[in-house]
Design a binder for these strands. Structure first.
Lengths: 114, 114
DNA sequence: ATTATATAAAACCATTTGGTTTCATGTCAA
DNA sequence: TTGACATGAAACCAAATGGTTTTATATAAT
């Protein structure tokens, strides 16, 4: 699944549906691996690997409590994603920006007949 | 790389750095495949495949103009991502929500000494 | 009519991904 | 101290991913 250092970023981490589901679970509360696993059909080992990837991306953090390892959400990391998104937001949300874009790119508009 | 129908979603599509770079390029203006390719070191075929994936995810759309196929950004699709993000936003941006979260999950706080 | 350009489509390939099973280790409870 | 529980780690595997090269086809330009 993975292994080496600093490999997974936020974009890769959230690409997998299972990992997104794990994030949802951890949004509610901190949970140990076994309890997270109980919400899925796949093996505990598979979930543990997903948690490693999420951890590499710093979307979650784990700490041991007794014999269990509890993971919690690290939501601040998603700011990175929000910032990436904000760049594109102008292209749909702002009518004026959209108009500006259209004016500056006349070749996109089928007005060649004029 | 891919092929079948309706396979790639937005999350998968933006997971690849090359594809994010392609989106950046198309944010400025509509471009034909060959011109997009000129911004990368990899082959045109590879870029074409990336464009297919972006197209499947409806992040871009292509239309033929003469012998070239021009792709343009379809930014509205990113709303989906924004909505996904908005759920998590409460966990970092809103101090009150954060406090609520803390209060409702006492086991996360190391106050066992009290 | 011929040649150059732009893309499409297919076959192929190495690596990564997402899963499994098995075995080892640390911790709690009786 | 002896199980039972929770995890870690390794070996293995099929399928997906991200690339390549080759061949074919449609359009543009001379």
């Amino acid at each position: 699944m993975s292994s080496s250092a600093e490999k997974h970023d936020v974009f890769q981490a959230i690409a997998d549906p299972t990992r997104r589901e794990v994030l949802r679970l951890l949004a509610e509360k901190e949970l140990p691996i076994s309890e997270i696993t109980s919400h899925f059909t796949m093996s505990r080992t598979a979930i543990a690997k997903h948690l490693h990837i999420l951890s590499e991306a710093e979307l979650v953090s784990g700490h041991k409590v007794g014999r269990e390892k509890r993971y919690r959400l690290q939501p601040e990391t998603l700011k990175e994603l929000k910032q990436w998104l904000s760049f594109y937001e102008q292209f749909w949300s702002n009518k004026l920006t959209k108009l500006k874009h259209v004016v500056e790119n006349p070749e996109e508009n089928n007005i060649k007949g004029i």
